[in-house]
């Protein structure tokens, strides 16, 4: 097997494992648009990275974190609906990113690679970043799992029983930003949200507890990544979109299978 293919598979699988548990929280907490907004802001990070001569990946992670902080503060004070705030930030940062990129001289930038990802171009540094950064994010999520879930189920119960609700909210947003900043290299600005929410949605059909759903989402994500790369390799389709299509296909199959599985579970009781 070619080494770039091996790197693509390793990177994709690692990313899917990270996105699984984070994606379930995105789905539970109805933060899909939030994830989308952070992803859009990452394009500004590319421009910032190129203009200031720092690593583009670092630029993306930094702008994602900044956007998350901005939203954490802004959403609390705003009289506007959170979808409006998110939409404004998403599109103005995207536009700002595009304009800023126009000022970057002498570098041929493949915008498509940032919009739709370039999993086949993953290098060893990317893998390390994914392994360490993503691994740290998952460890942090596991550490705050119970209180964060309590907060998701009922902020009132959580707060009344001493869960540090505000701190958890902000920390989760920052972790989310870290994961998205890392993931964009692989699936791109426009597709990252799909990799977060589609496997989680598929896993919902077959899970009875939050933990089962998180693990299920990771597995569905891995399956989508493998299927997408296979498709891309044999039919020569773009890899990022192929992964998303695979995830969507798995969701459709899951939704068709769900009633049958439920019936079997009922009969076996």
């Amino acid at each position: 097997m070619d080494s770039f293919l091996l790197r693509a598979i390793t990177g994709g699988v690692l990313l899917a494992l990270v996105c699984g548990p984070f994606g379930t929280f995105i789905v539970w907490r109805r933060m899909a648009f939030f994830g989308d907004t952070l992803a859009h802001s990452a394009l500004l990070g590319v421009a910032v990275g190129l203009l200031f001569g720092i690593d583009v990946r670092l630029g993306m992670i930094m702008t994602c974190l900044m956007a998350a902080l901005l939203l954490a503060v802004g959403q609390r004070q705003s009289k506007l609906g959170s979808d409006t705030v998110l939409g404004m930030l998403a599109h103005s940062t995207l536009a700002l990113g595009m304009v800023a990129l126009a000022f970057v001289q002498g570098v041929a930038i493949d915008i498509m690679a940032y919009l739709f990802g370039d999993i086949l171009a993953i290098n060893t540094t990317d893998l390390w970043l994914l392994g360490l950064g993503g691994g740290a994010a998952v460890l942090a999520l596991v550490a705050m799992w119970r209180p964060l879930l309590a907060l998701t189920v009922s902020p009132e119960i959580a707060l009344a029983e001493g869960v540090p609700v505000e701190r958890l909210r902000v920390v989760f947003m920052l972790l989310m930003a870290l994961v998205i900043g890392i993931a964009i290299k692989i699936v791109g600005v426009l597709l990252i949200t799909a990799l977060l929410i589609v496997p989680a949605a598929s896993a919902r059909f077959f899970s009875r507890t939050p933990e089962q759903m998180a693990l299920g989402a990771a597995l569905f994500g891995v399956a989508a990544v493998l299927a997408g790369i296979y498709l891309s390799w044999h039919v020569d389709t773009p890899a990022g979109p192929s992964i998303v299509i695979s995830a969507a296909g798995l969701f459709l199959v899951s939704s068709a299978l769900a009633p049958i599985v439920r019936r079997l579970a009922y009969l076996s009781k």
């Binding site: 789905v27 539970w28 109805r30 119970r146 209180p147 879930l149 309590a150 998701t152 189920v153 009922s154 119960i157 959580a158 029983e161 001493g162 869960v163 919902r204 899970s207 009875r208 507890t209 939050p210 933990e211 089962q212 759903m213």
Partner: peptide, 18 residues
């Protein structure tokens, strides 16, 4: 208690919430 249907939760698990 309005637990969203998107969040699977058994009573057994809910009792361990906090």
């Amino acid at each position: 208690l309005a637990i969203d249907r998107v969040l699977p939760m058994t009573v057994k698990r809910f009792l361990n919430l906090t």
